[in-house]
């Protein structure tokens, strides 16, 4: 019946070593897109900025450690990426020109005690660790522009996702999980540990773009 041969696996993904970006892997994503894997969020931010500058028609869409582009030929994408001269400082997470946001935060989340227990810190130390860092917006995902932020204090990185996700997390909740922090832009189910909430309007359909935070922006949380 179905005699369709499976695709030639060997021909699908290609890897290479870029002088600034490190190890890259490029693979087709369906017929019309190509996914570029890199080592992590810092490289994602640099690669996205370079692609937007060099070839904006590729419409780069970042993930946590990958960038999706609109293209049909993964070999050509690899060639282009390898030719990019990425002005990229490994010590600074973000472009200096990118907007910086200070998010007023009430540290009153339901999971503060749990996070303190998981990290062997006091609740106050958890809060200080979270508000003491400067974060970089890596990408907008999930739904309604949920911003995934990189830069969590190493002491908080071990906090995993909840074993059982909440059915409803209120809009504006600030959570951490799996080395990331983020703000829920709308009420939704959620599996992150909640540290607090903000009244900042993160998503407004009358704004262009609708999201307050954009990939490459930096963020700090200020306790109020």
């Amino acid at each position: 019946m179905h005699r369709m041969a499976r695709p030639e696996l060997a021909s699908l993904a290609r890897s290479a070593e870029h002088p600034n970006l490190g190890t890259l892997r490029v693979a087709p994503y369906g017929r019309d897109h190509v996914l570029i894997d890199v080592s992590g969020p810092t490289t994602v931010t640099a690669l996205r900025a370079a692609l937007l500058h060099e070839q904006p028609t590729l419409r780069p869409r970042p993930g946590w450690s990958s960038v999706l582009v609109r293209a049909t030929d993964s070999a050509k994408v690899l060639e282009l990426v390898m030719s990019l001269d990425v002005g990229f400082d490994r010590n600074s997470a973000a472009d200096i020109a990118a907007p910086h946001h200070v998010i007023d935060t009430s540290y009153d989340g339901d999971d503060l005690e749990t996070v303190a227990r998981l990290t062997d810190l006091t609740v106050d130390a958890v809060i200080d660790a979270h508000r003491g860092a400067t974060y970089c917006v890596v990408f907008l995902g999930f739904t309604r522009a949920f911003a995934y932020l990189d830069g969590l204090d190493p002491r908080l990185v071990a906090v995993p996702r909840l074993a059982t996700p909440r059915v409803r997390v209120p809009s504006g909740s600030i959570g951490i999980a799996a080395g990331q922090t983020g703000i829920y832009p709308m009420a939704s189910p959620g599996g992150w540990h909640l540290l607090g909430h903000t009244d900042a309007v993160l998503f407004d359909t009358s704004r262009t773009p609708p999201s307050l935070l954009a990939p490459g922006d930096t963020v700090q949380f200020r306790a109020v």
């Binding site: 693979a27 087709p28 994503y29 017929r31 996914l35 990958s66």
Partner: peptide, 14 residues
Amino acid sequence: APGPRTDWFDSSAL
């Protein structure tokens, strides 16, 4: 058409 994570699968899955 193939996705980006065919390497996550047993070759039989394809």
